[in-house]
């Protein structure tokens, strides 16, 4: 794949945001907020950073692997998988509908290309990434394992089991990212269970920690991921603290937990789509 410019990547983001909103609107359910907030990250991974093969092989030998732990942001993942060639974009219209491969939360049962394990029940993805990173080490496969988690998800105990484990096993082929949007279902994360200083916490657990201050600025996201990559192979796993705005790209959705799991109505959809250019053609 030819290297894309920042502008080209941003254009893809605009289309992905349209997909997210149209998918969630069509079934009147799903999670637009953090999907919109993580769009730059997903586009950067799949269109710029990862060595991956849309001709899908579940075991993924010789390619970078991505695991989504906070599975409820499936709309952004499905859109990016379709837009990067894993399956037809027309399938996006089946999202959350009966007999669809695009389940509410990602699943492998019907064999949707790009999905390697089910997620949605929070806290499990980093452990899975650790296992996949073990397998890459045994197989002498030098590619990287990526994991994305939510920030609310940091309240799950299993995350901290995994956080202890990866540095102990010197998994320096693993880049975990936390989507720091500061929101969860019941409100701002600091009011629900305050996560405190995540940088200090993860460093204390033995991770190499980097901070991406502007997770909705494409060049910043790419730089952050490149920095993360440069730290691999030195005996430590890498954690990327990605500051994002929930609902980014739509003025009335940004920066609030209100759109965590709420679909726009017809009028809201029209308003939102008016703010996002159709760059690759709607599905």
């Amino acid at each position: 794949m030819e290297k894309k410019s920042t502008e080209q990547l941003e254009a893809i983001c605009s289309q992905v945001r349209r997909d997210i909103l149209r998918m969630v609107h069509a079934c009147q359910s799903g999670h637009p907020g953090a999907s919109l907030g993580c769009t730059e990250f997903f586009v950067a991974l799949y269109f710029d950073q990862m060595t991956n093969n849309p001709d899908f092989n579940l075991d993924g030998p010789g390619e970078d692997l991505f695991f989504l732990s906070n599975g409820h942001i499936s709309p952004v993942w499905y859109s990016v998988l379709a837009r990067s060639g894993y399956f037809e974009t027309s399938e996006l219209k089946t999202f959350r509908k009966l007999n669809s491969r695009l389940q509410g939360h990602p699943a492998t049962e019907e064999g949707l290309p790009g999905i390697r394990i089910a997620s949605g029940s929070l806290g499990q993805g980093l452990s899975v990434g650790i296992g996949a990173a073990f397998a890459k080490k045994i197989n002498k496969d030098d590619k990287t394992v990526y994991v994305l988690m939510g920030d609310g998800e940091q309240q799950e105990g299993q995350i901290w089991e995994a956080a202890l484990s990866a540095p102990h096993h010197k998994l320096d082929n693993l880049i975990a990212t936390i989507d720091l949007n500061g929101q969860q279902i019941d409100g701002p994360t600091k009011d629900i269970i305050n996560l405190g200083d995540l940088k200090a916490k993860w460093e204390a657990f033995g991770w190499e920690v980097i901070v991406t201050e502007h997770g909705n600025d494409m060049s910043g996201v790419v730089k952050g991921l490149e920095k993360a990559k440069s730290l691999l192979g030195k005996g430590k796993p890498v954690l990327n603290l990605l500051h994002t705005d929930m609902g980014y790209g739509v003025d009335f959705m940004v920066g609030t937990h209100k759109w965590h799991g709420v679909a726009p109505n017809d009028e809201q959809l029209e308003n939102a789509l008016g703010q996002l250019k159709e760059t690759l053609g709607d599905y």
């Binding site: 993924g60 993805g125 452990s127 899975v128 650790i130 296992g131 397998a135 045994i138 089991e161 102990h168």
Partner: peptide, 26 residues
């Protein structure tokens, strides 16, 4: 020894890691 993983008293992480190891043919 290279195919054995001591996971400590962290059973949830152990199950997740086991699931991950299957991705890669283990």
């Amino acid at each position: 020894p290279e195919r054995f993983f001591q996971m400590g008293i962290s059973e949830a992480n152990m199950i997740g890691a086991a699931a991950g190891l299957t991705i890669g043919g283990k």
